[in-house]
Structure formats: C-alpha cells, structure tokens
C-alpha cells in the first residue's frame, strides 16, 4: 500500500459537557483516529453517539476536555494566531440544516463572500464577486443567485449555498455534518453527486458524518462506527461493510432497510434488545455491554481498547481476537 499523508491525527480525544447536578455528559470519550489526505472519512452511528461533537471538536468549535489533535504534524493546542487563521482557512464545515445555517437577512453573495473578506483581505470587490460567481458555478447555480436571499431558495439549493460558502476560501478539508439529512431522496442524490464531483476536481478531504448508512457506504473510503461516545470499529469501506466484526456494527448494518420485496431485511436482521443508555450514566466497561448478546463479566468491568484485528481494520471488543495472534 502506498504511503498516505496524515492530515489529522486525533489521539485520545475526550469532550465532556457539564450537566445538571455536577454530572458530565461524556459526548466523546477517548477516541483516536487518523484522517488521510484526499480520502472521505465516514463517521456513522445513531443519534447521540457523539459523531457531530467529534467533527466540531477537531475543527476547534469546542475546546476538547483532553486529548490531542495533530493537524499536519502540529498540535492544534500549540497554534499561534497565524496558525489558527491558516487552519480555519483550510478546514471548513457544511452544516446539517441548510435553512438554519444561512442568515436570512444576508444575500447569498454576502454569505458566500464573508469568508473571503476575512481570509483574502487584499481582494478587490470585483475579484470577490468573480470568486462568488465561480463557486456558485461549481455547485451548479447561476450568478444571479448572488443577489437573492435564502428564503427564496429550495432546500437543495440552500444546501448548495452551504457547500459554496465552505468552498469559497479554497479549503482542503471539509467536515460534512449530516449534509443530506434534511433533504428529500431525489435531492439527496444531487447533493451527494455534487460532493463526489467536487472531491475529484478539487482534491478535497471529507469527514462525512451521517446516520444514513447506505449513503456513507456509497461515499466513504474509510469508516468509523461510533456508539455512545466511543469508537467501536474503524476500517476501510470494504472491510467494514463486507466483514463487520463488532456486534454493534453487525446489528446496525443489518437494520439498514433494503428496498427489495424478495428479501426481508427485517426478518434476517440481528436483533438488539433495549435502547441506548444515557451518556451521563454510561456503563463502566464496554459501553455496548447492556445490549450486547455476547457480553461477559469482563465486558461489564473493563472498557475494551481499539485493536487492529486485520490490516487497517480496528475493533474495540473483548470477544474478538486478532487473526494472527
């Protein structure tokens, strides 16, 4: 395998939020992973598993409770002012709800060019306008959208504006936080096609956060599966979907609805009892042990570490042993 350049190296990331009564919501609890340049890193999991928090924390929206985020070999905690500027120019985000993330009082042109006024201070007005038209063309909109307002646009068009805004300052890395969750199926396909096309043309790296497992399978190179703040499985697309090992991953994937009348996914799925525990009182050992059909005493006491089971395929489970051990 060729040597890939590491863009992000996240080590033992923890992000706790204070809750009532002095308790802590452990939204992200000891997560480590790497993102390589040029790839699409998919993050899947059910709601409340911490996938959005991971995305926001590595972009510095939240300051992590502990752990390190190494960006291109440099720890983000040691960033100086100019490093921070360069970081925010290079790393952008596409938000979940395109209606809520566009200011209704700003024209589309102002929204898209706002980043330019910060990161390209020497740009003239005419150059800025030209750049706005260029990114609007990237996302398949004409230049007369620049003078419109977000309420005049449909959901799919608004999401395109969200993408255009992220692209305007020429970033290399984009966190896509559920970019298609608020869209209809036929529009979802348009946006996903757009994202794949832009990646090919501009050489972007994506972190694609979604609960839509079939879309993640479609778009991602490597995939991380999260459960209750922890990473349970990590690997490339083929090994995660072809050979899921963690009991949670298996249950999750078997619950993907398959549009096929001849084969009932509902009957052949792995049954999971119960529901996700609250992240305030997460189980002490393996977080999945309350619902896991294979849980033992050890699982209830010791949290399992993420171990490499096959080449590039990591699983956090006591019950699974490395192949060549």
């Amino acid at each position: 395998m060729e040597e890939k350049k590491v863009l992000f190296d996240v080590k033992n990331l923890k992000m706790y939020f204070p809750a009532r009564g002095g308790k802590l919501v452990k939204a992200v609890d000891d997560v480590s992973f790497k993102i390589y340049e040029g790839e699409t890193f998919g993050v899947v999991g059910e709601s409340g598993c911490g996938k959005t928090t991971v995305g926001r924390t590595i972009l510095g929206v939240y300051e992590q409770t502990s752990g390190e985020i190494i960006y291109r070999g440099k720890n983000t905690a040691d960033f100086k002012a100019e490093d921070k500027m360069a970081f925010s120019k290079n790393c952008q985000m596409i938000f979940q709800d395109p209606a809520a993330c566009l200011d209704p009082r700003m024209s589309i042109g102002t929204i898209v060019s706002e980043g330019l006024t910060v990161h390209y201070r020497n740009m003239s007005k005419a150059e800025r306008e030209e750049r706005v038209n260029q990114v609007l063309a990237y996302v398949g909109l004409t230049s007369d959208y620049a003078s419109r307002f977000s309420h005049e646009l449909s959901g799919g068009q608004r999401q395109r504006i969200g993408i255009a805004r992220a692209l305007a300052i020429e970033p290399g890395f984009i966190v896509c936080d559920e970019p298609i969750a608020a869209l209809d199926v036929s529009i979802q396909a348009q946006v996903v096609n757009l994202l794949t096309r832009l990646q090919k043309e501009l050489g972007l790296t994506y972190m694609f956060i979604s609960h839509d497992l079939s879309m993640v399978r479609h778009i991602s190179d490597r995939i991380a599966v999260m459960y209750l703040g922890s990473l349970v499985e990590l690997g490339d697309n083929k090994s995660i979907y072809g050979n899921p090992m963690h009991p949670y991953t298996r249950a999750l994937f078997s619950a993907i609805p398959e549009p096929d009348p001849y084969h009932s996914w509902l009957k052949s799925r792995v049954h999971l009892q119960g529901e996700i525990p609250s992240p305030i009182n997460a189980p002490a050992g393996c977080k999945f042990c309350t619902r896991c059909p294979q849980a033992t005493e050890q699982c209830k006491l010791e949290p399992p570490a993420l171990r490499e089971i096959e080449s590039g395929h990591f699983v956090a489970c006591h019950q699974i042993q490395p192949v060549n051990a």
Partner: peptide, 24 residues
C-alpha cells in the same frame, strides 16, 4: 425509476454517480 435508483444499494458502484433528477 428515479426514486428506486437514487438510493445507493448494496450492489451499486462506490463513488459512482447516483441517478438523480434535476430540479425541484
């Protein structure tokens, strides 16, 4: 056709172009 094909299936080509309908 569009509804059936715009959802990626198990067999579909990864990172291929999904069948999509233009417009709204």
């Amino acid at each position: 056709w569009a509804l059936l094909n715009s959802v990626p299936s198990k067999q579909s080509q990864r990172k291929g172009t999904l069948y999509s309908i233009q417009g709204t």
